[in-house]
């Protein structure tokens, strides 16, 4: 890895008059408006894109609140209906001794979303301010966040499958609660936030810092 104490000088694509395609990674000539390889529009790495990151992140956070407050599932068994929120469900699973399942749900529903919020916020902040984590490290963090984002939908999948399967009228029925929608939205917003983040900014900021130092 790099050593921030002794930054190595390197050439960024922008400095070389090139523009990297965000879709296929092809390095296009600087003046190109579209990717020569895949035809995607090429945009310069603009700090303004951070605004979109923040906006989506905020929306994701806002959606995450009702996802935790409102019930995720409404289970009706023999006329007895019960509603479970995310935390309540995890606690119930835990109290029933299903530690494994409880942990999985806990990670998928609580830890990962929260970690994503934190990671994206950190990345966005680190573009402006030099951070402890090196550029490469932040890039890896970004890739992890982007990769893991889709798996956060596991809760929503479970709810959707259960709702579709368990419709036994009086004996047992499961209906999605408001939290399921909120959670799905929250995950979607978070993914959009991650998508909005332009990792080139990490390197641009790196080069700017170096230039400043020079």
């Amino acid at each position: 890895m790099e050593n921030p104490e002794n930054p190595q000088r390197f050439l960024t694509a922008a400095a070389a008059g090139l523009a990297g395609c965000r879709v296929c990674g092809t390095a296009n000539p600087g003046g190109a408006r579209a990717c020569t390889c895949c035809g995607s529009p090429l945009e310069p790495a603009a700090p303004a894109s951070l605004q979109r990151v923040w906006a989506w992140l905020a929306a994701g956070l806002i959606a995450y609140v009702p996802a935790n407050v409102y019930p995720m599932l409404r289970t009706t068994t023999f006329g007895r209906s019960s509603e479970n929120t995310l935390i309540g469900g995890i606690a119930e699973l835990f109290s029933h001794g299903s530690y494994g399942v409880a942990l999985i749900v806990f990670f998928a529903s609580i830890v990962i979303p929260v970690a994503k919020f934190l990671a994206i916020a950190y990345l966005a902040v680190s573009v402006r301010r030099p951070a402890a984590l090196g550029s490469h490290g932040r890039l890896v963090l970004y890739e992890v966040v982007e990769f893991i984002g889709r798996w956060s939908m596991i809760d929503v999948f479970v709810v959707a499958i259960l709702t579709a399967l368990v419709q036994l009228d009086f004996a047992a029925a499961i209906a999605p609660g408001m939290a399921a929608v909120s959670f799905a939205l929250s995950v979607a917003f978070t993914m959009l936030a991650a998508q909005s983040f332009d990792p080139r900014l990490i390197w641009n900021a790196e080069s700017e810092n170096l230039n400043d130092h020079a």
């Binding site: 605004q51 906006a55 989506w56 905020a58 929306a59 806002i62 959606a63 939205l185 917003f189 909005s196």
Partner: peptide, 9 residues
């Protein structure tokens, strides 16, 4: 894009 979080809020 800021409209989205505003709307969500």
């Amino acid at each position: 894009v800021w409209l989205v979080p505003l709307a969500a809020l």
